[in-house]
Amino acid sequence: MKLSKVIISLLHGLPTTLILLAFSFIFANLIGLGLAWLYLRRNPIANGFARGYLGLVRGTPPLLMLLLAYYGLPKLFLLVGIDINGWAKLIFGIAGLAIGWSAYLAEAFRSAYLSVDAGQYEAALVVGMDTKQAFLRIIMPQAFLIALPNIENLLIGLVKATSLVYVIGIVDMYSTAVDLSNQNQGVYQLEIFVILALIYWVVVLLIEWGFRRFRKHYQYVTV
């Protein structure tokens, strides 16, 4: 077996990895935004819920989160009479990763929001914006730029975490590598995993490059 064949086989798993990455990242952001919003409420129930969620999820290994999503979500849904046992494993993989990462993103959003200069909000009000416009046009864009380094780190962490979906039987790039190394009866095993690592690395380097470009575009916005 040639190395080029190893590379091609591994790349067959890449689309699944990327789909997992994209969807779990999108959902994690949406849940994270909601959580950050709840966390910033003065309402003790909303605030308490967000704190509890963050505390629980941030102490949970991503691998365990995937298992809990896979075995736990169907049971939770059965309680309200919905049978989701037949859903694709990919959905549970996305759910597990999204739940896990939503907590980290929520914390990033919350701390970014809190570190926007209060004078910015006042300036928006005195030029006649209402509170909603001030939030959307001035506060949110600045909070986003403040949160960006954290978001980048979390996205990279998520790339790496997608490799864990093997535990619920999703065939991504990592489990393709495991299959390949098992088939080969011990030949080329090291090479397979080194190549796999290199592919992940390339994905991460591309993400870092994208964020660098974006930051360069906004280099003069010093928030």
Binding site: K160, S163, Y174, S181, F193, Y200, W201, V204
Partner: peptide, 17 residues
């Protein structure tokens, strides 16, 4: 950069083999 850009589980197998 390489270590920070690759999953720990892959690193573990690289060391394992």
């Amino acid at each position: 950069s390489f270590i920070r850009g690759t999953p720990i589980i892959v690193q573990m197998y690289v060391v394992y083999y």
